[in-house]
């Protein structure tokens, strides 16, 4: 039995639904906070994800920030050495999608060559009449950046587990890979 631990950083523009998404994941879709409230300070969501067909699990430590601090502060306070990345935009906001490349650039600069598995999440898929970002466009960009793409609606409780499950699986795969390398050294 293996129990991995991963520091998951949640980034993206303000109000794309980062907090809603991590709360839905925490509560297994039990509640959605309707009133807008800017996250105060930093919230930590810890949840264990079982890897299918094994007795192994990955405990995700999801750091959600209010987005009020400067970028440098965020790096120091919450990012540390990130294990996995969850990059979120709002499908009804093209601006939030275009910010993603900047977010990714910042995270990569912070990680200094460390391989960090990541997902791109298009949230608010329920707002179909206001959609500004087409699925194929997001998918193509995600692929070009080595990210797995997921669409979610924290409001309709649609697919919210999927991005986190995929992050856990990617981290688990990385562990298996590194273990193999280390076994050949000794």
């Amino acid at each position: 039995m293996v129990k991995l631990r991963a520091r998951c950083i949640l980034v993206g523009d303000a109000s794309v639904g980062k907090s809603a998404l991590s709360q839905m994941f925490r509560s297994d879709g039990a509640h959605f906070q309707k009133n807008y409230s800017m996250t105060a300070g930093v919230e930590l969501v810890v949840k264990s994800v079982q890897i299918p067909e094994t007795s192994d699990s990955v405990e995700l430590f999801i750091f959600d920030s209010a987005g009020k601090e400067t970028f440098a502060e965020a790096c120091e306070k919450l990012w540390g050495q990130p294990s996995v990345l969850c990059l979120v935009f709002d499908v009804s906001s093209d601006v939030s999608f275009r910010s993603c490349s900047l977010w990714l650039e910042r995270v990569r600069a912070h990680c200094q060559g460390l391989q960090v598995p990541g997902v791109l999440v298009g949230n608010k898929s329920d707002l179909s009449s206001r959609r500004e970002v087409e699925t194929v466009v997001a998918q193509e960009w995600a692929q070009s950046q080595g990210l797995e793409y997921h669409e979610t609606s924290a409001k309709e409780m649609e697919n919210c587990e999927a991005p986190f499950l995929s992050l856990a699986q990617a981290f688990y795969a990385l562990y298996q890979d590194r273990l193999q390398t280390i076994q050949t050294l000794a």
Partner: peptide, 8 residues
């Protein structure tokens, strides 16, 4: 060996 299983 002993291997760490994530985070520092």
């Amino acid at each position: 060996f002993w291997i760490s299983t994530g985070m520092f």
